[in-house]
Design a protein around this nucleic acid. Structure first.
Lengths: 339, 339
DNA sequence: ATGAAAGCGCTAACAC
DNA sequence: GTGTTAGCGCTTTCAT
């Protein structure tokens, strides 16, 4: 009987070993660069690997050995966001540098969707998972504990994390911006955001801002939170709503820079003088700001550093190396000329 | 001897079966909803599944059965792009709807990086892969053929695809825009793009545009292709370079809308009258355009439809259902008032 | 409707 | 430096 090829294309380790005239174990050692083979053996094996186009079967490897894979699950709110995209990109680069593969998912700010995703992912016995949900379902928490799998919570700063947290201090961002806007003499401030049912961390920034207002015995004059995702147009439209509702507003704090830029254009389209007639502040330090005639007052956040730190923390946890429970990624309020 | 728990957390099928007082096979049938069990049996099994917090082990399942997983590898140029992000988001939603998990990678327009990624991914015996590289290395092509795995090439339209291709006709987009710009009386047209060493499909659009120029016995007055990624600032800076180099330019075709918007702001900052002094055309139909005072002349592309079509084509291929070799996703030139 | 046995491709543990 | 044995958790095949 000829050597039976496995169903789909690839040769198996056994075939490579047979062709090279060594045992499976020896071939395995060569391929994993584990100690215990001569140069001559290596050459023989590698020759056959080349010749047969052998592709290792990690499913079998993960199954046969330690029961965990080099897969890492990463779930972000959505993929269509400069900020999350940048974090994910950075996570993926870092993970792949360490030899892990990234499995993605999106939760659109729904803890239930996150849980559904998680259950599917855990079936792959990932080395760890990176979550970005602000809150998790009870089911998520239980299943994570039961599997005792490394978890990094990213984006938000969680002072009592499931496992490890790497994030921005959104509350402080909001609070700092609130104080700044007040210090510039603005008094009648509105908020424009999106994602009514699950605002994610925008809500926390708003709360930080509100705290600053409270400290000055003030509050938001009005809040406009659209049932939409943050976007340029959502900012434009939200601003229109706010300004139609009241003439008293002299500044607006936006959920993020896309919305702030949208608002900026609305104001300009109405002939308003930005900063003088109406102050505008955003969050995120997005790239669009680099080409605007105005320098947008915003909070710059280090998304790539955040992603890298999160991935590195996960790898460290997987390897049982010491990891800080909570890591704060840098944010910096950058005054422009829109406030 | 007590039942030995597997290393990490989870109960095994055997444990669930034992607890429910049935065989592994019966429990397996219940969990996969395969025919051959009574309602009573199902209830017993599901009760234990709940009680033990059983998470199926897909690694073992994939290994034990057909040697392919429900994993799908998707490699895009980068994650920090509205357009690619939207395609990926749509792919992931569609795949997960069909029960597949998405493994991602980025190639940054390098075929070698794509190949490296592919080798790592194929080791997981994915059900299929979705690639977006314009060109592939010889190694990529060989390994894909050898594994005889379903492949969908997305983004670019490939008339002789490895397997299945779903994409935009970038050449036609460029050609159509070229004809349009000429029809508006512009004569001295420049091109501003990015990613010198590997332009991706921007290059094809440029060639389509060039063809339209050639048909009118013309050519680009000058081309500025930055070593950078396309971005707002790259467009701003590229435009500055072009206009510093020559005064004769009366229109610029940009690699995409981000660059076009960057260019637009540069022109405005110099007091140029857009459309009259200088025409501007982009590609992509990006969201920012919705809030600009100018309506950007651009080509709208259906990224979500593209992603959905690509994922559906992959699933069909995996299931051995008939699939069109080549599918063209919709693009539409939308005249604004910047040309 | 249910179960028993075999085996998927690899690696850990232990010989030699 | 190399080979042998056993087994990971599941599904397939074949009985019953």
């Amino acid at each position: 009987m000829a050597i039976e090829k496995s169903k789909r294309g690839g040769a198996t380790l056994a075939e490579v070993a047979a062709a090279a005239g060594v045992s499976k174990m020896t071939a395995s050692r060569v391929l994993r660069n584990a100690p215990g083979f001569s140069n001559q053996t290596r050459d023989k094996v590698m020759l056959e690997v080349q010749r047969l186009g052998y592709v290792p079967n990690r499913i079998a490897a993960a199954f046969g050995s330690d029961q965990t894979s080099t897969l890492v699950g990463v779930c972000v709110p959505r993929l269509t966001s400069d900020l999350f995209g940048s974090v994910l990109d950075s996570i993926d680069h870092t993970l792949s540098k360490f030899g892990y593969q990234t499995m993605i998912g999106t939760h659109e700010q729904s803890p239930e969707v996150e849980e559904t995703w998680l259950r599917a992912i855990l079936a792959w016995r990932p080395a760890g998972v990176i979550l970005s949900g602000r809150t998790h379902t009870r089911g998520t928490i239980e299943i994570l504990r039961a599997q005792s799998i490394p978890v990094v919570e990213v984006w938000n700063l969680n002072t009592s994390p499931l496992d490890v947290s790497v994030g921005f201090n959104h509350y402080d961002c909001g609070h700092e911006m609130g104080s700044f806007v007040l210090s510039k003499g603005y008094e009648n401030i509105a908020y424009v955001g999106a994602e009514t049912n699950a605002e994610g961390m925008g809500k926390v920034r708003r709360q930080g801002f509100e705290k600053a207002l409270q400290n000055a015995k003030r509050e938001f004059l009005t809040k406009e939170i659209l049932t939409d995702r943050p976007s340029f147009y959502a900012g434009y439209y939200g601003t229109e709503n706010v300004l139609n509702r009241t003439n008293d507003v002299d500044a607006i704090y936006y959920q993020d820079d896309t919305m702030a830029v949208g608002g900026l254009f609305y104001c300009k389209s109405k002939g308003l003088n930005v900063a003088d007639d109406i102050g505008i502040a955003g969050w995120g330090g997005m790239e669009i700001a680099s080409v605007l005639p105005e320098r947008l007052t915003t909070t710059i956040v280090t998304t790539r550093a955040l992603g890298k730190a999160a991935a590195e923390a996960l790898v460290a946890r997987v390897r049982n190396e010491p990891v800080q429970d909570v890591t704060v990624a840098t944010t910096r309020l950058v005054p422009g000329n829109t406030i």
